[in-house]
Design a protein around this nucleic acid. Structure first.
Lengths: 386, 386
DNA sequence: CTGAAAGCGCTTACAG
DNA sequence: CTGAAAGCGCTTACAG
């Protein structure tokens, strides 16, 4: 048994030293000599030509069989299938895509996989795509325009047949012209880009915000903060703010700009925003948060300050991620049915790839308020200045 | 403005009726007539030949420029780059991969994207791969051998250059022979497959379990349950059980088989397992859970029973996902540094793709116990039978 | 129902 | 440093 320390291993070790107490490098044989792979394709890949030769048909016929053409005699079909099995043939979708100039890989660009927002959505998209023999490349933009552009560029180089995108703020409409000129359908999820002409799947954020605000007003709140919305340059943000303002006015309340607190869309952002809010001369008694992650951050931030979330400050989130049920207090939130977004966007995308040419559609899935403890156990703020 | 109701739209509407109050179908023009796309590639794709023609060089020279070859005169380089810019050339990586028979797309198969276990890991893998101009196809197995096989098959058809896999229970070692015969490197994350001969990145589960159990024993617990581990057929499970048993014995305690409670690895599984555990004649006073999601399920399940998690039952998880900090009580857990798993596995995979041929390596990142409230506020079980 | 032939857009030796 | 030529594994009309 020899332990080979290649350059890479040494680099790894140096790097790991900060994280590890030890590394085991296993000298176990790779088994290359054993040659026990009963599959024929040892060095040369098995091609359709090999299959055709073995089955005694032409390559064209074999190709038709692979793709399940109806115009092939049953006996020929079986012959070819048997040869494929026997030779361990693996269909070369790369070559097929190249030849037919049409791939079966969709590009999906999200902002941040740690946001639970995407989980059920991705699961559903994946299910629908794989079911139809499609796959997807996944990319993350981290809310950075530059990174989004790079990721998209890489995907286009890889000739994806469609792009499903949660656009970062400031995404230029020109991008969609480019995609159109390349005949690549685009679909936006959750955030629109004005003038994009792309399909869209999302919810009515305005209504969602109104449901939340009306509920809080009904609970007796008069000073309600809006937390979140950074970066601000997208419709999902503007619609929420719009719903927030209109619902307040509709209830006879004024909008206090001090209570609109922009913060990055992550836990940390929520933690910092609530600290900021509590320093105001007239702090809010309730927080309506851009999303659940912010709301969870607010919850943690309050505990950091020695306050009890819910009792000292009502909290409402947005999204209805699973974690809203495990946190204490359970979080009131606006459910937008992300799993449904996933199903709808994958189907719509497959339709476009299939050649659907009608005008862009907007698929809007209405939100629903889920009332839980965090907005109904308010007891009043303690005197913070004391 | 016309509203076109194609077949697909009608289908969508019928389907949506269960979820929606309404759908808006937008008649906004697609803008195809505007022809304002200043990029040349309207119908025909711009090829390297076009670029070469425009720059007045041969296709081969243009190819060398695209790939940043050093053996090209600076003036030629500039000419070609200018032409590329001017014509809006997009490198066709599909064609390149096909020609060189080497792709730059890695296949990543995980079990379930809703498990936070994967989030930081995927983010890191993605960062490392995209940085090197690689991309990845993502697939999910849902712990089903059949689904894993299908996903892998699709990936092989798409000619991925490597496979990063969290194998489901019962993954046959033969799979790895097949991959080897196709010259596709494989790397396992978090779970080993005996005899696979693949690289492995993971932690020392045995040690992690021991740290957890020793801590609970120090806290005075004598009846400690192990919850989780279904499906049981993988090393990550066996090592945990092994650590659990050995640490108990080392502390002079006996292993009670009744306290080993198998359950599916999700929230629901935790909820049901704790209900089961509480029905035992001698219920445990502490639960060591297979992962944090199970532990969170246990937390919820206890509340369902009117019990206070932590106080009525100590709880320890495994993984240190973000949610362990927001749940009440904050969860004691074993951190395994998943972000680091991501970095290591992506690097190791890139090394293999680059031609590294040494024996398989195991990169083991040591676990660390993170003590939080859920294991240090125990007050005793109430009399459940009463 | 099946076969012969062209070609998708690149890369890669091999000359010059 | 640059050009001419072959070919990766398929699909796709077009004949027969």
């Amino acid at each position: 048994m020899t332990i080979a320390l290649s350059t890479l291993n040494i680099i790894t070790i140096e790097f790991m030293i900060y994280y590890c107490e030890y590394i085991r490098i296993n000298g176990e044989s790779f088994g290359r000599q054993k040659e026990e792979c009963d599959l024929a394709s040892r060095d040369k890949r098995v091609t359709l030509q090999d299959v055709a030769n073995d089955a005694g048909v032409s390559r064209a016929t074999a190709s038709l069989v692979v793709r399940g053409s109806k115009s092939i005699k049953a006996s020929t079909h079986k012959k070819v299938m048997d040869s494929m099995e026997k030779l361990g043939y693996v269909y070369d979708r790369l070559a097929a895509s190249f030849r037919s100039q049409s791939s079966s890989t969709v590009g999906i660009v999200i902002t941040d996989i740690e946001n639970p927002f995407y989980h059920q959505m991705l699961t559903k998209i994946s299910d629908v795509l794989y079911e139809q023999q499609f796959t997807f490349l996944l990319g993350m933009s981290s809310e950075s325009q530059e990174k989004q552009e790079k990721v998209l560029e890489t995907m286009l180089e890889n000739r994806v047949c469609g792009i499903i995108l949660t656009p970062v703020a400031g995404t230029p409409p020109l991008l969609f012209n480019k995609l159109r000129s390349m005949q690549i359908p685009a679909l936006l999820i959750g955030r629109e880009v004005e003038g994009s002409g792309a399909d869209y799947v999302g919810t009515d954020y305005r209504l969602g915000s109104q449901l939340a605000i009306r509920h809080l007003v009904e609970q007796g709140h008069r000073r309600i903060a809006y937390i979140g919305g950074m970066p601000p340059g997208n419709t999902a943000y503007r619609e929420r703010i719009d719903g927030y303002c209109s619902a307040l006015r509709e209830c006879g309340l004024e909008v206090d700009p001090q209570l609109i607190i922009p913060t990055p869309l992550n836990r940390e952002g929520g933690i910092r925003a609530i600290q900021e809010a509590l320093l105001l001369d007239h702090p809010p008694t309730a927080c309506f948060c851009h999303n659940d992650i912010i709301a969870l951050g607010v919850t943690i931030g309050m505990r950091f300050q020695g306050l009890v979330p819910g009792e000292h400050m009502a909290i409402v989130g947005f999204d209805n991620v699973l974690e809203t049920e495990t946190v204490e207090p359970q979080l009131t939130t606006v459910s937008v049915f992300h799993d449904q977004w996933g199903v709808e966007s994958a189907r719509q995308m497959l339709g476009r790839i299939g050649g659907l040419l009608n005008d862009p559609v907007k698929i809007i899935i209405p939100p629903k308020l889920i009332v839980r403890k965090s907005s109904v156990c308010f007891k009043g703020l303690p005197n913070l200045k004391a």
